[in-house]
Structure formats: C-alpha cells, structure tokens
Simulated scan of single mutants.
Amino acid sequence: MTPAHRSFAPSSAHPLARRRLLTATAALSGAALLGGTAHAAEKPTWPAAFPLPAGWQPEGITIGSRPYAYFGSLAHGDIYRADLATGRGTVLSTGLGAGHPTVGLKVDPYGRLFLSGGDSGELRTADGRTGGIEKVYAVGGTFVNDVVLTPGAAWFTDTYKAVLYKLVLGRRGAPRDVETVPLGGDWVQGDGFTANGIERTPDGSALLVVNTVADGGGLMRVDPRTGAARAVDLGTARLPNGDGLLLLGRTLYAVQQAQNAIDVFRLNASGTRGTAITRITDPRFRIPTTAAAWGRRVYLPNARFDVEQPQPDTEYDAVAVRQV
C-alpha cells in the first residue's frame, strides 16, 4: 500500500471509550528472550504532552531505538509517528480502512512494525520507515489485541479466545509463519473481555499476559513452549482494567485504563511474583491504554474511551510521566 504522509504540528489547545469492547515498550536486548533496553535521556525542553490528529482514536504506542513514537488508530488502522523532541508528527501509513483497526503495535530493531488488527482478526506487518503494509495474516482471531516481540517471534493476544498467536521470525526479524498456541493451565477464559496486554518476564523465560477475569483481574505467566499459564502472585493487587504492560528491568508498569492509573510492580526474575511499588495518577490522564519508554519518561496515549461516539474533530493527545 502506498503510504500517506500528512504533517501535523502541536496546537495551543490541550486535549483533554472505555474501549467499545473495554479494552510498550523497551527495545529488544541481545539474545535474551524477554528483556529491556535503556535509551538516551530526553532533554528537559522536550514536551511532556503533545496532540495527536483529531479523530485519531489511539490505543497502542511503541518507541524503538530512536526518539519517535508510533501510534495506531482504532478508526482506520493508520499509523502516526511523532518526534518526541518536538511533539510534531506525520501520518506515516494509511491503514486498510474501517473494520481494520490498529490496536497494539511494536517496532523491532530493524524498523519493522508489528500490528494487532483488533476485530478484523488480522496480524499485520509494516515498514516503519515508509509506512507501507508488508503482509496481512488472517488468523481468524476474535479481537487481536496486543503484541510483544522476542528474538524468535512476535506474540499476539486475542481478547475473546484462550490462545496466543506466534508469528515466527527468521533472520533479521523477517516474519515467517503464524502458529496458534492454546492457553491452558490456570488460564481462565471469561464470557467476554479477557486477555489484554502482553510482556516478557525479566529473565526471558516466559510471557506475561493480563487476564481481566481470573481472581478479579491479574497477570498470567505463560510458558511460550506449551501455553501453560500460571497466576502471578501480586499479593492483594488486582488488575480488573489492566491494559498495556511495560517492563523496564524488573519494574513492570501496568496501565489500568478505566482507573486513569498505572500500577507499578517489582517482579522477581522469573516473573512468578510481583510486589506493588506505587500507583501513578495524573490529571492529564484521559483513559490511557498502553505505555512505552524513552529516557526517564513513560509515554501513554489517551484513548478517551469515555467518549461514546468519537467524531472526526474529537481531540486526542499523548502524555509523559516520570519513571519510578
């Protein structure tokens, strides 16, 4: 697909649903299956908030090895790229239109974007430099929600199915075939919205998946070889509105979108146990959904799921908070 590039600059306005269905990240490091990478620090003059295009309906965010954030659109699947130093951006990629949203997304070290297609049931890959769609994988998903990258695969959650989709990666991250991995063990699949954000354990041995149903909402540690899930011990903490996950070292940021908060945990190396550190709230939060890091900041899109009928002129923005 031929990408469209439309310039967009911050305005003087400060833009301020719950996802119609309810509805991060550090770059890959070395050969560890699941780890995080630090970035060069941002300058104090970089904006701590900047607008996204009107009517955008953002949900996912990803930041790679350079200070640019990519945002998907639930409305039409387009991709917007913003310069974190200025807050200015362009529409990098024209999506496949209504019915083909971009929900979660990640960029790999080679500049390739991996896109979750929501209720289109698709996985997609795109060129992060030109925005061109490379390939569409019709996996028959119900709501392909979020994605995390490991050296050997891109892993996608499905909100209404007890499965993960594994897009196998070859040399230099080249996508190959898709495998469906059933979730078992302690996994509890609700009648409605269940799986959401996905991350990696600090030691790289397993995956972490938000389950909004099990025991009032929490995390499942999933063996990527078998799909066997075990509940992560978070003490008394619960994630009933858990959305995007961001792992920095052993610190896990879990966005609780409907609560306008980020709950922060300290994990053990294997990701079997987490201790609540703090909750981050901010008056600028307007139903944030996912998170990505640059320097000492965590960036989040405000999805504004409280707006029942988004319009073409509905305002959206992204905000940054300091890391714990």
Rank of each mutant, 00 (worst) to 15 (best):
E42I: 03
S93E: 04
G99P: 12
T62I: 07
G132Q: 13
K43I: 07
E59P: 01
D108F: 06
G60H: 01
A38T: 12
K43F: 09
A85Y: 04
H39A: 12
A98E: 15
Y80S: 00
S65F: 00
T37Y: 08
D78K: 07
F50I: 13
R66E: 14
A48Q: 14
A41K: 13
T130K: 08
P58W: 02
G111Y: 00
K43H: 14
F114N: 02
T45S: 14
G121C: 14
Y70K: 02
I79P: 00
L105K: 08
P109Q: 08
S120M: 11
T94Q: 13
I79V: 15
G111T: 00
W46Y: 13
T130M: 09
D83I: 03
R81C: 03
Y68F: 15
P51K: 05
R66L: 11
G64Y: 01
S73A: 05
G121I: 15
P47F: 11
A98D: 15
T62D: 11
A54R: 15
I61R: 00
G117M: 13
G72S: 07
G128P: 10
D83A: 12
L113E: 02
G132T: 09
Y110D: 10
G36P: 06
R112N: 07
P101D: 07
F114M: 04
H76K: 14
L96D: 08
L92S: 02
L74Q: 10
P51G: 11
D119H: 14
T45Q: 12
Y80V: 00
V91Q: 13
S65Y: 01
A48C: 07
W56K: 03
P47T: 06
R66Y: 04
P44F: 12
L52A: 11
P101T: 02
S120H: 11
A49H: 03
T90W: 07
T45K: 09
G117K: 10
